[in-house]
Structures are given as structure tokens and as C-alpha cells.
Design a protein around this nucleic acid. Structure first.
Lengths: 205, 205
DNA sequence: GTCTATAATTCGATAGAC
DNA sequence: GTCTATCGAATTATAGAC
């Protein structure tokens, strides 16, 4: 069979790859596990993507970057207001509302997003290429509503804001098992709590 | 050579294992990389520890658990005061002051501590065995100074407190490269900022 | 484009001599 | 306890037929 459904093959590989990278991390993921889920041949990965790192890169571009784009579009809408809470919503809502969305990657994409941020080198450098712009944009936005804050203040604020959702996304499945009431761990609740925690935490005396 | 220096062999393996687990994560670490650094034979790992997971367990018990013990001793000293800030210091200072200490593992132990918390399953369950008690103790302590908070409030507060230092420890080497002034990213500065961020973030209206 | 087959490593684990 | 040697399985990557 020649070129009958190349686009579908690529999509199946990307879907399965996102799932495996999310659950096992980059080092813990094997291409054979991916192609088994994707129901494609091992050689198809090399043909369509090259190698394992390039596959990760493709998964980031296909699934993760659109979430960042959504964050930045929302930031564009609100940054003129100089309202910190609206900026925090722009950052937190796109990845968190994803959990409630439909489709194959609704459950694993948020986990994938979180796990990317704690990958060891040299993977983290590949990841950071795609997210450095987002960090810069949010730090610049913070400066608008905290004019007296130093550059370091703003950088720390961004890291703390990011930390809350990274750990939530990477740990939420385990957290749910260990804590009491799962009703209190919905994405809406998480967003609201992260936003309030940051809003007060970033406050300058 | 029989049993000439078994204790030293174990120590060398533990040192090197901590270093590798910290930098590459569990899945990304190979026993062969460890024994090369430890300058011991591959069979020594099996003899002294059994397998890779049991080696990780031994590294946690030998290096990470003492830090938790220090946190809990400090918490014992301050929890009667019902002072949130002192409790936050009890949590953050032991792992962060470690960065400035002497010895082989001063640089990698903090990274190891942070990386443990974002390991994928089934590793995370092994890790959590050693830290579940700490989480429970701090949540109980928080209740003392926030009597009107719900159980969920307290659990979220603990997760957020933990998130800040986990992401800092796992990402600090990369963060330093990407941000402006390294002087503003010392452990003391980090502790002070985390404590203040949490103190305000946990505040109930 | 897809597939089979396999090269070339690397991995964790172990048997057995000393 | 330590070592050599190696097993068996898993890995990524690739060559070449169709």
C-alpha cells in the first residue's frame, strides 16, 4: 500500500506518543510501546519523524504549542487592563479547561504539558524552546500591574505561578488517591485555588 | 578480596546512584553509569541492594529521609506557636540550606529530592511511602493556625507549598541560565520568597 | 509509504570462580 | 565480597523489498 493514509498514520503516532510521553516521561517511553498503541509499523516513526527526540518535538508542536497560543491570545485581550487576576486566568484556564474537553488527548495532554517542564536535560532544552516566549510575555505583562516590582520579583512570580500547575498536572492522579474528597479536586476548583493563591502570593507589601 | 571494605563499596554506590537519579531521573539512569562513577563492579549492586528499584529505595532512606526528619523536628518545635510563618520555615529551610552545605551530595541531593516528587508511576508510589507521613503532619499543623479552613483547603495549601520547592529544585539549574541575575537566585532568597508567597497565598479572606 | 528483517547497542540481572 | 563473563531481553535505528 502506497501513501493511502499517511496523514492518519502520522496522527495515530502523535496520539499514542503524547499518551506515552505523558505517562512514562521521555526516558521511560519506548517507541515500541507507542507503535503498538498506534497500530503502525516501527519504521513509520523513522519515516515520518526521524528519531525519538524529533517525535517529541512534533508532539509538542502539534499538541502543546496550541495551548500556549491560547494563553497568549487571552493575555493579549486582558493585559491592557493591568488586572493581575485576569492575567492569571489567561495562564491557568487554557490548560485546565482542557481536562474537561472531549477527544482522545483530553486526559493525557494536560499531564504531558506538566511533565515536559520537569524533564531532565537535554530534553528540557528542547521543551524550553517552545515555551520561552510564553514566559517572557507573561513576565512583561506582570510588570504592567506591578510597576514597583524588580525584574527578579517578576521572574520569581512567574516561576511560582508555573510551579502550581506543573505539580498539579503531574501529580493529580496520585493526589486524588491520597486525599479525601475527589469532588474538591475538579479543574474548576483547581483553577480558582491557583488563581487566588497567586493573586495573594504575588502581592507586594 | 573478601569483605575488605564492604561499607565503603555501599557508600560509593549510594553516592553515585543519588547523583545519577537526580540528574537523569529513575528511567533515564542506568546501573552501568552508576557503577562507572562509583568505581565498583556491576555485580556489587545486585549483591548489596538487589535490583534497581531497591537501590532507589536505599538512596531515599539514606539521603532523603533525614531531610524529612529535620523538617518534622523543626515542626515539632514550632507547631505549638500556631505561627504559619514558622511552619513554612520548618518545611523550606532544611532542603534549601542543604544546597550550601559541604560534601559530595550537597549539590545533587536537593535536585534528587525535587525529582522524586514528579517521578511517574510505579516509582512515585515507592517515593510516596517515605513522604506520606510528612504531608500528614504538616496538614495537621496548618489546621492549628487556620481553624476555619476545610480539609480541602489544607490539602491544597500543602500541595502548593510543596509545588514551589519541587519546581525550584528540579528546574533551578536551567532557570539560572535563562534569567538575569544569579545573585537573586540564592537558596536564602529562594526560601524567603517561597515563605512569603505561601504566607500570603494561604491567607483566608 | 509501508513493511519485514535485522543490525548494533544497551539494558538489568545472574551464574560461578576465587 | 568481589570479580569475570555472559545471558536474555529490550532498545533505537536502518537497509532494502514491495
Amino acid at each position: 500500500m502506497k501513501s493511502r493514509n499517511a496523514a492518519a498514520t502520522k496522527q495515530q503516532i502523535l496520539d499514542a506518543a503524547e499518551h506515552h510521553f505523558a505517562i512514562y516521561g521521555f526516558a521511560g517511553t519506548s517507541l515500541r510501546g507507542i507503535i503498538k498503541d498506534a497500530k503502525v509499523n516501527i519504521a513509520a516513526v523513522a519515516y515520518h519523524f526521524g528519531n525519538k527526540e524529533e517525535l517529541l518535538n512534533a508532539v509538542i508542536e502539534r499538541f502543546a504549542v496550541p495551548v500556549v497560543d491560547a494563553q497568549l491570545r487571552k493575555l493579549d485581550e486582558v493585559q491592557a487592563s493591568h488586572d493581575l487576576k485576569l492575567m492569571l486566568e489567561a495562564f491557568y484556564l487554557p490548560p485546565l479547561t482542557l481536562i474537561k474537553s472531549k477527544g482522545k488527548s483530553a486526559r493525557t495532554l494536560p499531564l504531558f504539558l506538566g511533565r515536559l517542564q520537569t524533564e531532565p536535560e537535554p530534553i528540557f532544552s528542547i521543551v524550553d524552546k517552545h515555551f520561552a516566549h510564553c514566559r517572557r510575555r507573561f513576565i512583561d505583562a506582570f510588570r504592567l500591574c506591578m510597576p514597583s516590582a524588580t525584574e527578579s520579583d517578576l521572574q520569581w512570580n512567574f516561576e511560582f505561578m508555573l510551579s502550581l500547575i506543573v505539580c498539579f498536572l503531574t501529580r493529580q492522579n496520585e493526589i486524588r488517591k491520597r486525599y479525601a474528597d475527589p469532588q474538591d479536586w475538579t479543574p474548576e476548583e483547581a483553577a480558582e485555588r491557583m488563581i487566588r493563591f497567586c493573586e495573594f502570593g504575588m502581592h507586594k507589601d
